[in-house]
Design a protein around this nucleic acid. Sequence first.
DNA 1: TCTCGCTCGATACGTTGTACACATCTGAGG
DNA 2: CCTCAGATGTGTACAACGTATCGAGCGAGA
Lengths: 238, 238
Amino acid sequence: MAAEKNAFLWERLERPSPAPRQTLSPQRIATTAVAIADAEGLEAITMRRLATDLGVAPMAPYRHVSGKDDLLELMVDHVYADLRLPSGLGWRPSLRTLAVLTRELMLRHRWLAQLPPQAKLSLTPNRMTVAEQALAALDGLGLDADTMMSVFRAVDAYVHGAMSHESAVSTLVSEQSLSGGAELRDDLAPLMMWHMRTGRYPTFQDYLRTATRKDDAAWQFDLGLDCLLDGIATRLGI
Amino acid sequence: MAAEKNAFLWERLERPSPAPRQTLSPQRIATTAVAIADAEGLEAITMRRLATDLGVAPMAPYRHVSGKDDLLELMVDHVYADLRLPSGLGWRPSLRTLAVLTRELMLRHRWLAQLPPQAKLSLTPNRMTVAEQALAALDGLGLDADTMMSVFRAVDAYVHGAMSHESAVSTLVSEQSLSGGAELRDDLAPLMMWHMRTGRYPTFQDYLRTATRKDDAAWQFDLGLDCLLDGIATRLGI
DNA sequence: TCTCGCTCGATACGTTGTACACATCTGAGG
DNA sequence: CCTCAGATGTGTACAACGTATCGAGCGAGA
């Protein structure tokens, strides 16, 4: 594993490259991979496909990333570079902005919410920067370190959970709208109908009949988020 | 696709099986698959491995599940059968119990938090029942249907997001503690150290130095959950 | 009893991640 | 300017995966 003998991916990235052979670089690999995933989804990310789009032999990228997991981390770090919080806003606007910007990032790159969990866990520099900024926004309010981190993680957990759902639904809908073509929600709706016909879910059925914002994902996201922020404010007295 | 010509998996499951050939059944398939995933993780789930453990040819399970995705849905539904809320508790204890029981379920089956998102989305009967119970607990409080669903989904999103993180960490730690053997957190800690040595994350570093409950996942989970429930109560006036 | 349809077995194909050995290019030291 | 070690890209190959396909065996209704 040639790429691994020099410690961490991030460490290698920060020293000047000893041989500027320039046809391939972590930057170019990340950009290309992100373009593929944005256009065709996470399942289109293949080491061979990546190599093809880079105009290079299948095994070439392995000189720069130690494997597919490494590639996914690189992609995550690449897109998180776009996520920069304005500073000096107070804890609540900071956390709210963080959540909203993260949502927008995940809508721009729907594959972000579909990554395998070890890739979501990855401690990449740009993700560390986001965490640092969020923690800094919570500093100096009289909270102990554990509480600060828990608050940040609670918001992060909500955002990831909500977006995992939202982007799975939107991916499913767009997939079948371009393949089947006939009816939108061609998979979900009939299955839901079948469940309803069993009569076992009366409250759920009421919801389906009377709800008017079933497709307003932003409204749903904001409601949960504001509840969470309200609770943080009242419970912690900040 | 023989298994698909008869509509939904759940529909097939509810009619009496026409040929009681009994060597294979969705029940037995689900139990066996869950046992594999519980013992060896999600990546051990292979159609071939499943067939081997069932004592059957590799393609045999395809008569009962239409593919791997179907298998994962079956597994999800199987374990969610254990999740039953006590009724008549009021909305807040109900939602809290739901969250805590879901967390325990996901700790018992760590693969639940690592499923690909389309499997998390699956509308299985037992998941529908959980949703029905949660919505019922929110009924009659003067909330409109959209708000009820959003509240339920907010809690669900928090639980999934938090457990996705928690179970990824615990999986990582247990994996390397049984493989590398030397140091616990052998992957995470040195990488974190390296990040800290860059000096770019002072607030984060303070956290690492002064925090005392870094490993108390239950405490962190409860704090975020209680904040969310507080916020729901105050913002919606219930 | 015969036959039909469901169940399971055997074989095989295409795709994936990646190990390995070889060829080539680069910049530094003579 | 030449050479040479090491970094970089190529070609080939393999094992494992999901699953399509076809044929054999069994049970139940005629």
